[in-house]
Design a protein around this nucleic acid. Structure first.
Lengths: 212, 212
DNA sequence: CTAATTGAATGCTGTACACTTTTCATTTGT
DNA sequence: ACAAATGAAAAGTGTACAGCATTCAATTAG
């Protein structure tokens, strides 16, 4: 072990009587926490090579989502990781990892909001609604939308999508062979998708949590 | 740069006239390649903390699968990673990452065996069939089965499952409230699932590749 | 006064490396 | 002859760390 000695002052490594240099110790300096491409800290883990494309895809999606969210200043959340991790029955007893087996009948169940609202934790995320364009569908400002990105965005469903990089909630429709993102409020116009616009559907809204 | 000099013999680092010690250079010594928990080499990649439970689950599933496969000496494959990685349209143009958007209508398509047989590359794997218990379903020994583990194993489907750690292919049935793994060959008996047996359903067989 | 420049501080990132685990020819024991 | 013990070799594994990127107060210029 190697010891170095400092006088016990407030800023041990940098005496703040330095005369003419810029910089020096300054509160607030330095890169901010959570300034990675994902908006959160990362950790290095080892992955078998055949799984790397799959993981890389997940990472790219997460990164792209974070970019869009940042530019829209929207509020996107993901189910609490710890809770879900605990709840996944991994080859224990009669349930295959993540996929319910028919033998489920024999297992007693207790009702849990997570179980009720989140079918596929890995494919679920939450978005806080903004604006009043979907009032008719029961979606009020600041409501929390539960989104399943594994569901196919069929016509008639309410979807979360990024249109030219902007995040919106609309009902998916088709009018005369043209895709339409329909608002559910007469005050707001429907959005007709042109050939050259970039539409990315993130997932299908399955539930709305509204605070009275 | 540091240079050391060796006489150019067959085993430079170890002169093989060492008299009494054990070991020394020996061809074939050392840990074997692919002796990791996954049966293949791994690489360290950085993952945002909120995705770690999801990735960890994937790893545990892969590990558990490899263990079972090893103990059964079965032949399980996964779609070639490079090919799939290239094919995933990641937020480009009008297609959302991995999930087809309705705007697909406007994109020309070419037929590809991969597209035809593999709906979800990340959830698909291949198993080489053994035995003749499923001849009636057109599954011969050494056939390659295409398995989708994202499909729900409903009654009547042919599934890959691990019963008490042993890998089998059977048709899923129910007789008098009891789950039955039914063979498709009168010579072989059906398997009735008891309360205390560990049944893990890996996925649903979607196609069979048979060599004439 | 306002805007541009500067450089220290601090978090992020990839990967090198120390340590562990596995394997097997050789040695040693019976 | 056979079996157990041994230790070097080689691959696997986690993580520390050097270098990179970002931020912002102090400084300088206009």
């Amino acid at each position: 072990m190697l010891y170095t000695f400092h006088l016990l002052t407030e800023n041990p490594p940098m005496p703040d009587d330095s005369p003419s240099k810029r910089g020096g110790f300054r509160a607030g300096a330095g890169r901010k926490k959570g300034s990675s491409a994902y908006g959160e800290t990362t950790r290095a883990i080892r992955v078998p090579e055949s799984l790397i494309p799959e993981v890389t895809t997940m990472l790219a999606i997460r990164k792209r989502q974070f970019e869009t969210v940042k530019s829209c200043s929207a509020d996107v959340l993901v189910p609490a990781p710890r809770l879900n991790a605990v709840k996944i029955p991994l080859f224990i007893g009669k349930v295959a990892a993540g996929f319910p087996s028919p033998a489920d009948d024999y297992i007693e169940k207790t009702l849990d909001l997570n179980d009720l609202l989140i079918k596929k934790p890995a494919a679920t995320f939450f978005v806080r609604a903004e604006g009043e364009s979907m009032l008719g569908a029961g979606i009020h400002p600041n409501d929390i939308l539960i989104v399943d990105r594994s569901l196919k965005p069929v016509l008639g469903k309410i979807v979360i999508c990024a249109l030219n990089g902007e995040l919106t909630v609309k009902r998916l429709k088709k009018l005369g062979g043209e895709i339409v993102l329909a608002a559910e409020n007469p005050v707001y116009p429907d959005i007709h998708i042109r050939e050259n616009s970039e539409l990315v559907i993130w997932g299908v809204v399955t539930n709305v949590i509204h605070a009275v």
